[in-house]
Design a protein around this nucleic acid. Structure first.
Lengths: 223, 223
DNA sequence: GTTACCAAAATTGGCGCCAATTTAGGATAC
DNA sequence: GTATCCTAAATTGGCGCCAATTTTGGTAAC
């Protein structure tokens, strides 16, 4: 914890500290449970004390870090139950608007989605962890935008971050990443075929598999 | 804007400033569009400058106030479209778990809900605006708790606040408040009768009517 | 050898000051 | 009389210092 002062240090000047810390938590640079000492962050991101404290306060509001009075802030420990609950919420929200998405889909938007799905595929090969993560986000964002509900797009982006203590570590196995990539394309296919039921099934399966609970168990819990 | 320094000033010492400002926005004491000068807030809530700024930062993260750099913070102006979108999200979430609520409902939880519905009725008569608002929140919270998804309970509480520029002003007319009170009891009835479809219909109608868009239009938009 | 206590170092967190930017008002020129 | 520019007051926002609390390491006593 003391020798962190390496990669992001020089390159990242003008950007917001909150986003930088967020990125490092999301990409696993700052693992779950890590105590975030204000002095260390100050040096690591080359910023002032108040900036660090504002970032930590924001992240604790977002429930990405926990604040223990007079002890400090640490990255939230993974909570299986919470992750499960968030997955359930995502399934509810994203499948609920499947009909709207089919209704509003145009050839142009489908083309954009294909491009984003392809971009995800590329990042699987050559991109960094963060680029890969963001490519996935971009695809799902574009998909949800079809619902016409901007508030929903933002909300899902938010709750997506909630489970993420070790969000990309879920993609450790190559098999799972490739399956995700394939599912992206299948979702676009279903959208193009205007098959609402199939799209819903695909969305649910896609969300559940990325959770850290086995699909079988999550289905049991749901029932 | 200069002579605000009256009610809450002396009584509120030990509580968090963020909550105090939040309350005053929710109850309409600080109307939509109001510029929140840091000095005024400092005096009004008898707190320090950093406390004010932390509160304003948190509220802007929650999108209850807007931050204009070098200009200050002002209460968000009501946005019909956003309010509509938030209502849609609430309908999706709260009706989606209706079956879970019926499944998990016990005689004890139903009794608690009846008590809370009665409490809301009382507050209609004698309570302050804030008490009334919180009585409504408490009822819906208890109802959602039946879903067993704590994350969902928190999420709905959060997005509930998003529309609230003038949240209680929606309750200006006595007729509407009384209708809400009746609907609370009807929801408990449906829950007790284990009538999922009816419960869903009630929940949707209850949420839509509190929005500032007419039910007819919102239904049209949904379809 | 182990445990309890004390002291010193480190870390958090509250608070206030000062610079930068904006706004409003007044004076001057047209 | 009106418009424009300039100056002054006010407000925001960045930054650093110091007190309070906690933790750790050492020492002494049992």
């Amino acid at each position: 914890m003391t020798e962190m002062q390496s990669v992001t240090e020089t390159a990242a000047k003008e950007r917001d500290v909150t986003d930088l810390v967020l990125e490092d938590i999301l990409t696993g640079v700052l693992p779950a449970g890590t105590w975030l000492k204000q002095i260390d962050l100050e040096k690591r991101y080359d910023c002032t004390r108040p900036e660090v404290r504002r970032a930590l306060d924001r992240l604790s509001q977002k429930r990405l870090v926990e604040h223990v009075p007079n002890r400090g802030y640490h990255v939230y420990l993974p909570d299986g139950r919470r992750a499960q609950e968030v997955s359930d919420i995502r399934v509810i929200l994203e499948t609920a608007v499947a009909d709207l998405m089919v209704e509003r889909a145009t050839p142009e938007s489908i083309a954009r989605l294909r491009a984003l799905a392809n971009h995800f595929d590329e990042m699987t090969m050559v991109g960094t962890v963060l680029e890969h993560y963001e490519a996935n986000l971009a695809f799902h964002r574009e998909l949800l935008l079809l619902s016409g509900n901007n508030e929903l797009v933002d909300l899902v982006s938010e709750i997506r971050q909630r489970t993420s203590s070790a969000p990309v570590s879920q993609w450790r196995t190559r098999a799972r990443v490739e399956r995700s990539a394939r599912e992206h394309h299948m979702m676009v296919d279903a959208l193009e075929a205007r098959d609402i039921a199939r799209l819903k099934r695909l969305i649910e399966a896609h969300i559940r598999q990325t959770g850290d609970v086995a699909p079988a168990e999550s289905a049991a819990r749901q029932a």
